[in-house]
Design a protein around this nucleic acid. Structure first.
Lengths: 122, 122
DNA sequence: TCCATCTACAACCATTTGGTTGTAAGTTAA
DNA sequence: TTAACTTACAACCAAATGGTTGTAGATGGA
């Protein structure tokens, strides 16, 4: 998770992700797009790879970079958990203001508001 | 955007966000929860504040930290933009295979959640 | 074969990061 | 006022980051 968000915390790397969502690009082609050395771009690609955000497929002497949508979705879900907790708080407040009989199959319904506050993030 | 994701790229900071979603906590209370100095936790709070992920309200001599759900949502939307581009690509491929009677409706039933897919960095 | 291209990786450097300790200032309670 | 508590911030340090250059291994084409 650290690696995932760290990889996203750089404009160049986010741009690489955008360029490689639709079709794979070789590292050389990518490097042409940025005002830095080939090796620098290669390092960015390595960071993205170790974060699981991209994979490389070889084609001839090139390595085609393409982003892994699954990893992007994983990051979104992590943020979604935070939002869910916030929404639950708002819902409680709403509940106090309205006798809402609405059928609310909440995410972790049941065990009230168990203070999860334990061990960082899995 | 850099600051936003950078702030999220640390387990301690993500934990602070979780703890402060439901109710504000003073920096001192937060600091008790981690195996590091008060000043270190204070620095983490500063990083989160500069990223717009939390705000501080003063109560007496304390400063209550509480997370800003809007900022979390902003990060999700940025990731949603990436996913949308990927989904468009999958949709094109689906179009090519549309004649296939395969019993595979695909995991992403297209018109799922409309993400705003708009302005982020740049 | 020889050459150009693409990639990988090491060594190096400046800056940032995450942590520490110490000092000072504002606020509440006695 | 004095003492305790909470916060802010500076100075310092080791390690990581983001960039550079240089060298070397594969691969494809003339």
């Amino acid at each position: 998770m650290d690696r995932l968000f760290h990889a996203l915390a750089d404009a160049t790397r986010r741009d690489i992700l955008r360029r490689c969502v639709r079709s794979g690009l070789s590292v050389s082609r990518l490097a042409e797009a940025y005002p830095m050395s080939f090796a620098a771009v290669q390092k960015h690609v390595t960071v993205l790879e170790r974060a699981g955000l991209i994979t490389k497929r070889r084609r001839g002497r090139e390595r085609l970079v393409h982003t892994d949508p699954g990893a992007v979705d994983r990051a979104r879900q992590a943020l979604g958990e935070l939002e869910t907790a916030w929404r639950a708080r708002v819902d409680r407040m709403s509940g106090l203001l309205a006798d809402d009989p609405g059928p609310d199959p909440g995410p972790e319904a049941g065990s009230g508001d168990k203070e999860t506050t334990e061990g960082q993030d899995r």
